[in-house]
Computed example of a mutant assay.
Amino acid sequence: MQTGSTKAVLHRRLQSITAAAFFLAAALAPASADMIDTSGMEPWEVCALCHSLDGNSRMAKFPKLAGQRPDYIEKQVRDFHDGNRSNDGGQMQAISTEVAQTDLSDIATYFSGLTAPAAILSGGSSEAAARLFNDGRDDLPACLSCHGQSDPALPLAPWLEAQHADYIAKQLYDFRDGKRTNDPDGLMQSIARQLTDEDIQDLAVFIAAQERPERTP
């Protein structure tokens, strides 16, 4: 966990990077790894250009990393670096080359140690989504059967609550359509293929509106 003074110093350092550099790195495609001079930055500050220093990104294109499971964060960066996962425009593939693989544990520890994001209340969730998330249905297990477990045997199932709804929906669509394939044993692809567009939209809104309970990473 970062101290208040450490966070303040890091915040001031992050502010020294211009907004123009941020938006160039986030928006241009294909992304280039040499768009931003990252010399002298802490490894997590590079990630904070898009995901924010407090781990609560302002744009749904970038997932919130605060309070996320460290093993999950580390795996995703490795998957982008190794070509096992891609994203629109290649930003993550490019930025993953800006951090040393030996720094991934420190990056994951930094973001996982931040306060988890607050729920995003929108009033648009449905009872069907609540049942699917908490209990499942005949053709699907409950989302919480993996994503709610603090079992050390499931370190790669991310916490979902309070994530951007649009980000959740996009990942489910990508799993369903075969655009994202880095899930262990293809489990999420199999589940997502059984979800309708309405299921995905309802689930995304419902999950974003849930407070995340305290869990052991």
Rank of each mutant, 00 (worst) to 15 (best):
S86V: 10
A31P: 00
P184K: 12
P43Q: 10
T181M: 10
Q2T: 12
Q163C: 03
I120R: 15
E161S: 13
F175V: 03
Y72T: 08
Y167H: 09
R193W: 05
M41A: 09
G55R: 02
Q2K: 11
R58V: 07
A60K: 03
E127A: 15
L172K: 06
P213V: 10
M35I: 15
L65I: 12
F23C: 07
S122F: 01
A119N: 10
M35A: 13
S57D: 01
S16H: 06
P117V: 00
P141A: 14
C146I: 12
L28Q: 06
A153I: 10
L140W: 00
A29G: 07
D174N: 11
S105V: 14
L132D: 02
H51D: 01
P43H: 08
R193C: 02
H81N: 15
I95N: 02
K64S: 03
G40Y: 07
A208H: 05
E45R: 13
P155Y: 04
P63G: 04
T18G: 13
G148E: 04
D174A: 07
S112L: 06
A108P: 01
D54Y: 07
R180H: 05
E42W: 05
Q149R: 12
S126G: 08
L28S: 02
L53V: 06
Q68W: 04
A108W: 05
D135T: 13
N84K: 15
E45D: 06
Q76E: 14
P63F: 00
P63V: 01
K170A: 11
S96Y: 06
K61H: 12
L53D: 00
R12Q: 13
A31C: 06
G113S: 12
A27W: 04
L49N: 00
T216N: 09
D71I: 05
G83F: 10
A31G: 05
R78K: 15
G148C: 05
D106K: 14
R131K: 15
F23L: 12
E214H: 07
A26L: 14
S52W: 03
T102E: 14
D185S: 11
S39D: 03
A29K: 15
R131A: 14
L10G: 00
Q189R: 13
V46E: 00
E161I: 02
D88N: 09
A25S: 13
L187P: 00
I73D: 00
K7S: 06
A19R: 15
D79Y: 12
T38D: 01
F62N: 01
A165P: 11
Q149S: 15
S57Y: 00
